[in-house]
Nucleic acid binder design. Structure first.
Lengths: 363, 363
DNA sequence: TCGATTTATGAAATCGATTTCAGACTTAGG
DNA sequence: CCTAAGTCTGAAATCGATTTCATAAATCGA
């Protein structure tokens, strides 16, 4: 921690330029300056231009605290994600911020590390900051949190899920249905011995839980319910994907298809399969979820589910902007996911092809 | 875009509880309530407890706009990153937010998409919001932006670089020195025919430019200056890494070592090398920069430079917290990077080992 | 040309919390 | 028992922009 010579910060800022200063310079009242900024159309053009010149000359910017105090609106939205380390959340936040920025909103960001207590605290802090709207991730939030939101009377939307409890609107995909489809696809290919790797360790990760349920349901429906030992629970990391695959194949060496609830786990599993000398997909089919950038570049490219993160972010922004303005808003928006069949999945080596059905694509 | 029935948002929030309401309930003056909240120690304990009870009963939270207006401090910091899609920035932002949150600060986030104009606009918007401090990335910022900062009198710190112009303090690593070291390491292994893949398309990406310069300088010093055709300029993406490698090997089929300015490009290059049937590292050595999670899991694992993103984020937070408080702060902090030698790099197939030198490790 | 409208501007109240200043009350000392 | 010092508390000013209300100027019709 190589520290260069320590200095004290130079003199504090000069007194801020106030609306009154501009008014005096321009020989008008503060009210007029305010009008020039907020309702330019009701000020005589020549006067407006004059005032504008002085505003620029003095590099005046209004004090948003004073503004917020008077108007009751902060023009600020907050988002709390579990973590930014996941590209899928980072992408959503980026899209959210871009859309908000276009509408003059600024975005507060916080992360919960999948911890509901932390999520609650961060939300509390954001609400104290007077945010006009809030974006959450997922459907599992404590009662406490919901009543805090209700009490504050702030519009909320929850993201990455198709529906949330407690009358909270949602925008996202139907995670369970997506894994159900991908599982059915593998069944159609002829697989009968499955394994699942799911990051369901964090209590608040309802997305992954829904994904796991989709797998289980599809297999139960097919008369091939998963035994507990066929499900390896993991945290979120590549390394865990590796060890999970190893464990799975130790317990069930004859597995032909492994369904992972995230691409990261799937990529870890593929790395481990390679190391173990198992050919993907001829010996082992592996699927992921999220369609991260790398998925398409793997060797073989990874079969996965593409999540429209940017659309989710934009949609959340639009929802809040409307809700804040008092416009009517949809209760929930279910976005289509996309099954991306690549070559990490194939029929098992020597399978008797079952009765075929057609299709499978967009949801 | 499957829309559910549209509804209007329920009745707007009940009138906010004010400090005066609490005061009335507790039979004290607003001043006392304020003191209970801000200087609890100067209020008689029993009275303080009584007021506290009423504060809780009414679930009073102070209006931060009013508070900020009077006190002139928002307890808010802003950060502008080029993009959140890069794990390295997401990680830094996350660490930044965590540290700020511990100190009662809230974080505004914005992204510039590597566009200086956008960066300026976002900064302007943040300054209007009254932020107490600002975190930027990299050293290339327009004069305009610097004077805006100066005028606003807001403490700034720039990140991921070792030094920034214009008296702006920095916290980060010496990018040029890092690639110089990695190039020298490849030279010591015996390589003489080099190629570089650099994401220097975005005008404001000074990090990558510094990295490229490090490569060039090391090779010039070794008497092997790169010809323009040995440098492929790319954008930031895996696919570009692939096509860049293909182009490089078309022009210079005898290349034995390819140095990339980011892991993403290197991973793309490795994927392409595999596809072209080139063995890494025996035929071709490839190196990256950033040490993303995947780097260690590649086959073969990628030689790269590890950037302490979390430390940078934390350090930036600490810097601003101190600067805002008026405490003395270091002008700049250079953090150590770490060369991570993995097996994507090795001596060229049939090289005459040159005179050996020792070491190479931490900076 | 004069009154009736319309339009543009300014004076002043307002948003809610903080803090200075002064006064009320308590305690200690003589 | 009375004054002096010390503690607490309340009244009121303040932060800076917005907006209502009123007034002055401009426009129009008769």
């Amino acid at each position: 921690m190589d520290k260069k010579p320590v200095i004290a910060l130079k003199g504090r800022q000069q007194p801020r330029v106030k609306i009154e200063d501009v008014a005096r310079k321009a020989n008008v009242s503060p009210a007029t300056v305010s009008r020039v900024l907020n309702h330019p159309d009701i000020v005589r053009p020549e006067l407006r231009d004059k005032v504008m010149r002085h505003i620029n000359d003095l590099a005046y910017t209004r004090d948003s605290a004073a503004r917020a105090l008077k108007s009751g609106r902060m023009r600020t939205v907050g988002v709390i994600v579990p973590t930014l380390a996941l590209g899928i959340f980072a992408e959503g936040v980026e899209a959210l911020q871009n859309r908000l920025s276009e509408s003059g909103y600024t975005l507060f960001i916080a992360n919960s590390q999948y911890d509901q207590r932390r999520e609650f605290q961060e939300l509390q802090s954001l609400i104290e900051r007077g945010i006009d709207g809030i974006v959450l991730v997922g459907a599992s939030h404590g009662r406490e949190l919901r009543s805090l939101i209700e009490q504050a009377g702030v519009p909320v939307i929850t993201t990455y899920v198709a529906k949330a409890g407690g009358g909270i609107p949602a925008i996202g995909i139907d995670n369970e249905s997506a894994t159900r489809e991908i599982t059915e696809y593998l069944l159609r290919l002829g697989h009968v011995r499955f394994g699942a790797i799911a990051n369901v360790v964090a209590a608040s990760n309802d997305r992954s839980r829904a994904r796991l349920e989709g797998i289980q349901r599809a297999l139960s429906d097919a008369g091939l319910p998963l035994k507990p030992s066929q499900i390896v629970k993991a945290d979120y990391s590549l390394a865990q994907g590796r060890s999970a695959l190893r464990q799975l194949l130790t317990d069930h060496p004859d597995t032909t298809a492994v369904i992972c609830t995230t691409d990261t786990l799937a990529i870890g599993a593929m790395a481990e399969a390679r190391k173990m000398g198992l050919a993907v997909p001829s010996t082992l089919s592996i699927t992921g979820f999220d369609d991260v950038e790398l998925a398409a570049q793997m060797d073989p490219p990874l079969t996965t589910v593409s999540v429209p993160a940017a659309e989710i972010g934009r949609g959340a922004a639009d929802y809040l902007i409307n809700a804040i303005a008092g416009s009517p808003v949809p209760r929930s928006v279910v976005l289509p996911y996309r099954l991306v069949m690549r070559s990490s999945s194939a029929p098992p080596r020597s399978s008797v092809r079952p009765a075929r059905r057609g299709r499978s694509r967009d949801h």
